[in-house]
């Protein structure tokens, strides 16, 4: 398998000091990967460094063996819903078209292909009927789908999603996950920052368990061992007990 993301010895943080220390891991092509860890583990910091919003103190992040600056158009970043202003006067269609503006920049002409891609993206997330809807009048799950449609319209090879399942209902979560898996099966790579350890083993084919250091990275089975979880979550017993229960019940099922 080809490596899409290679993070080597990354230390990064803010003026007050590093948040993540000497982080190294790889993510292969064509998987839905989860970056999982407790609150304050540095997940968001890691993602910010990856997309070039924050300069690392040391270490490197490479995508397809290249710097982010060379390949950013192939990478679609989906921010947390709370980070944007949903009162902005725009329709669903306008927001998804932003995915095309990435390629056309500020003044390039919008072509028929662009419009076609926007339409396809909206149809994929089943939001085409809502295209004229003002974005402030969407539910949380719909907002998340519109965001994902924007990423699709960008036509990238790698998706980076920051907590896409936060504040959406179970059904939307499943639906979104299906969309992500679909992309992965087409050879695209999907990386999701996720806080819920319990659903992580079911959602992702590749896991990065983070708590300021990388505790472990790889397929869920090899990552979610009791020792690793104890190292990441600091031996939080109730968490451990519930998770090991969950894991043992999972192991009885045949692995996909």
């Amino acid at each position: 398998m080809n490596t899409v993301i290679k993070v080597s010895n990354l230390t990064a943080g803010y003026d007050t000091g590093p948040v993540i220390w000497g982080v190294s891991f790889e993510i292969p092509e064509g998987v839905v990967a989860g970056i999982v860890g407790p609150n304050g583990a540095g997940k968001s910091t890691l993602l910010k460094v990856m997309v070039g919003m924050l300069k690392p103190h040391s270490g490197t992040v490479l995508f397809w063996n290249k710097q982010y600056d060379e390949v950013y158009k192939r990478i679609a970043y989906v921010p947390q819903k709370e980070e944007v202003d949903w009162t902005f006067p725009a329709t669903v269609y306008d927001v998804v078209m932003m995915g095309r503006w990435v390629h056309r920049r500020l003044w390039g002409r919008i072509t028929k292909t662009d419009r076609e891609l926007v339409k396809q993206a909206l149809e994929t997330v089943e939001m085409w009927d809502y295209r004229h809807r003002q974005i402030s009048r969407l539910s949380g799950g719909q907002q998340q789908r519109v965001f994902f449609a924007r990423a699709l319209a960008q036509d990238p090879d790698l998706f980076l999603l920051d907590e896409p399942f936060a504040g959406v209902d179970m059904k939307t979560e499943e639906k979104l996950l299906e969309l992500l898996k679909n992309q992965a099966s087409q050879g695209k790579t999907v990386v999701v920052v996720h806080h819920n350890l319990f659903t992580a083993s079911e959602h992702f084919q590749w896991l990065v368990l983070l708590n300021m250091h990388v505790v472990s990275a790889g397929p869920p089975d090899s990552v979610l061992t009791p020792e690793n979880i104890e190292r990441a979550y600091g031996g939080h017993l109730p968490v451990l007990a519930r998770l090991s229960q969950r894991l043992s019940s999972l192991k009885e099922k045949p692995t996909r």
Binding site: G52, Y72, Y77, P79, V84, D94, M98, V102, R105
Partner: peptide
Amino acid sequence: WFFTGFDSVFGYTQHL
């Protein structure tokens, strides 16, 4: 204005 007013993070990541 979409990138400054609506979603600046997305704008930054795409080097706008």
